[in-house]
Nucleic acid binder design. Structure first.
Lengths: 188, 188
DNA sequence: CTCCACATGTAACCGGTTACATGATTTT
DNA sequence: AAAATCATGTAACCGGTTACATGTGGAG
């Protein structure tokens, strides 16, 4: 899937692997991330498949970089991916739920302290969303015109992240409450 | 992680690979799933690591099965996993958001129809939760005593699933609405 | 007789992570 | 001189998926 994230960005403009990592971190981090090493590997694969092309660009004041450009073939592959319907409900793996499901032997106190940690982490994540006014900080793209319609979608995707964190926080608060009043004490 | 899901179930009782798949499907499917093939591979690994032991059990009216039992070593490894704090915020990959993020070239009509499909799927998933009265259908475990505290946790985890679907559905409805009124029409 | 549930596995592949390796250039 | 940022890559490993292969026993 990373390859489509990459094609998506290259569809706007040519970028290097390093640039792509920054784009991903700045704009899609909360629903899609990737390590630099994997980005480089994927770009290589994309190039051998003929979906992108690259050239080395010299910079002054910085090391050279290899800039990738999407090909017509790549654009078509991307369009096909867009048009292909997704699996209706994506299955998501959440280790936290797995652990909580089996957590009783851990004891009430330890369970509550792990949930408290989660709560703080998600509250601070939620604050990150609030502090960023524009939908995404895709600075590189902001100068492009005719992007209003795209921004609408970015905002909707961003909104999912906020709602997810809100839901998560409310659930954690209720879970902590329920465990406090319902679970029997540890035997210490 | 699957190994810990398996150890978690074996911590209640000994089970075969096939049984484990059913347990996973019946009780943890919405936050942890696994294919049979992978369960068998993981059990093999677990056995060579000394975390479980197995013996072949003959059944009448059914093929033999290999039943796995957790060892003392396995119980300790499981307890350590339980006690180890999780990464604060789990990163989750959601292909749907990735696609929506880049979906503008797909056109308004096609975007809306994909979101409609999603909406129906999640609504029906949400109905599944409502129709099951007990927290989980872990029939095999229901006869065990002293499980009340465990059931509290199962219910909390189940509750996450419901809230997630509720959030998802509300988001989809709002997204569809926003796109309908905001996005400019396709040129057909 | 066929299909389904029960039951266990192997092999090829794939997407991703971690760790390692290298080096230019800028800032402190 | 050291640390941070820019920049690109390789290798070993790992968790998981898909497809394949095999076979028992009961139900329709």
């Amino acid at each position: 899937m990373l390859k489509f994230a990459i094609l998506g960005f290259l569809n706007y403009q040519s970028l290097s692997g390093y640039d792509l990592e920054q784009q991903l971190a700045a704009s899609t981090a909360h629903f899609w991330h990737a390590r630099l090493s994997q980005i480089y590997m994927t770009l290589k694969k994309l190039e051998t498949d003929g979906w992108v092309e690259s050239e080395v660009v010299e910079q002054d004041r910085r090391p050279d970089k290899r800039v990738y450009t999407i090909t017509a073939q790549g654009q078509q592959a991307f369009a096909e991916w867009l048009a292909k319907p997704m699996p209706e409900v994506e299955s998501v793996k959440r280790a936290v739920l797995l652990k909580l499901f089996f957590a009783r032997p851990l004891g009430k106190v330890a369970i509550l302290s792990q949930l408290q940690l989660q709560l703080h982490a998600h509250q601070s994540k939620r604050r990150e969303y609030s502090s960023v006014l524009p939908p995404q900080a895709i600075d590189l793209l902001n100068h492009l015109p005719e992007l209003h319609d795209h921004k609408v979608l970015w905002q909707i995707v961003q909104d999912f992240g906020k709602r997810y964190e809100d839901m998560y926080i409310a659930w954690l608060e209720d879970a902590i409450q329920t465990i406090q009043v319902t679970l029997s004490d540890d035997d210490l």
